[in-house]
Write a protein that binds this DNA or RNA. Structure first.
Length: 337
DNA sequence: AAGCCACGCAACCGCCAAGGT
DNA sequence: TACCTTGGCGGTTGCGTGGCT
């Protein structure tokens, strides 16, 4: 079988020095971009003899290259089973899922994507997926929502509330649109956070490590991830409904809002997320330990040790205070799914 | 038309682990 | 056991390209 060099000779001829230029030529060995002639020599030799010892190969194949360079050229570019072209949505999703589990183990990830090289996946990650995750508010390394989200959220919400405050004033299109977008972004981030927290819990409770991760675990994580990484949360509530029982729901609250652990009273911060619905209800969250530089919004409260931050539906004008317990019920999930 | 800049990607570098002597 | 060789991996670099001003 003859491998087709992905870059045609004419293309290469027109590109005198693609990629990194030769920085030195230790031992007189050539470095830098491969020419079509070199590619042909390498392909022909490996097809006839196999690569055997990479160190010995260059001499035997008549190439003035080091073995390492030959191996790299073959495995990343000339190998006949390499799949070129854009990554499909399925491949992208696979990379995201595997990266959330394996991290930057590109070679391990590549074993799950036939025809794709670790180098290609790595490049795709660095140029596309990483940015995509960042744009969506996720830390690309941990796949968790960025930890600076809640510290940035109050400003966002304060601005949104400001718009509400001046509701009586004539609102221009920009202000109205900003408020809408702020609310949308808040909703998106919040729901993604919920899902990710659920995913984390599922992962940690069902498996103690990679070696014990079951197919069911992977399936669950994959499901949650696929919901999480969609451009806008249109997920069905089923992902959350997998979490059975009130106790686990309260664990989510713990993860989300980090209840106070000290004996001292801690200032509580009220975040009005403003998830306005047709029935005029809102989702209101209470958060412990606000950024000290920002004043509390909408009526500060004091939380005692053991209090669990709350999130519940309430009417627009209801006084916000510490709720006795966190309740994430199916109604909420369904309401905002 | 020219300059600037961000992006994509091939290729190199340095390190590490495994296997052989 | 220590050293050497080899292959493999992840991080990084730097050039070409295309879009924008």
């Amino acid at each position: 079988m003859v491998a087709t060099p992905p870059t045609s000779p004419t293309q290469l001829d027109s590109i005198p020095s693609m990629g990194r230029s030769p920085c030195c030529d230790e031992n007189g060995l050539k470095k830098g971009p491969w020419t079509p002639e070199e590619d042909q020599k390498l392909i022909q030799y490996i097809e006839k003899q196999g690569h055997g010892s990479w160190r010995a190969l260059p001499k035997l194949a008549g190439l003035n290259r080091c073995g390492k360079s030959c191996r790299l050229r073959w495995t990343n570019y000339l190998r006949p089973d390499i799949k070129r072209g854009k990554f499909s949505d399925e491949e992208e999703q696979t990379i995201l899922n595997l990266h959330s589990i394996l991290g930057n183990k590109w070679s391990a990830i590549a074993t799950h994507l036939p025809g794709r090289t670790d180098n290609e996946i790595k490049n795709f990650w660095n140029t596309h997926l990483k940015k995509k995750l960042i744009q969506m508010g996720f830390d690309p390394m941990t796949h968790q929502p960025r930890t600076d989200f809640f510290s940035a959220l109050p400003q966002l919400i304060a601005l949104a509330n400001l718009c509400e405050f001046v509701d009586g004033w004539p609102k221009d299109n920009h202000a109205a649109r900003f408020q809408t977008e702020a609310v949308q972004a808040t909703k998106l981030q919040y729901l993604q956070f919920l899902l990710q927290s659920a995913s984390t819990m599922t992962n940690s409770s069902n498996s103690s490590g990679l070696g014990t991760t079951t197919a069911a675990d992977l399936e669950t994580m994959s499901l949650l991830n696929s919901q999480m990484t969609s451009p806008f949360p249109t997920m069905a509530p089923s992902g959350c409904q997998n979490i059975n029982g009130h106790e686990q729901v309260n664990q989510i609250a713990s993860v989300l809002f980090e209840p106070p652990t000290s004996q001292e009273n801690i200032e509580c911060y009220t975040m009005t997320a403003g998830f306005s619905q047709g029935d005029n209800s809102q989702i209101t969250t209470q958060r412990i330990s606000p950024p000290s530089s920002l004043p509390p919004l909408n009526g500060a409260s004091v939380a005692n040790q053991g209090d669990v931050c709350s999130m519940s539906s309430c009417n627009e004008n209801e006084t916000h205070s510490i709720w006795p317990e966190f309740l994430l019920d199916d109604q909420f999930i369904a309401e905002f799914a």
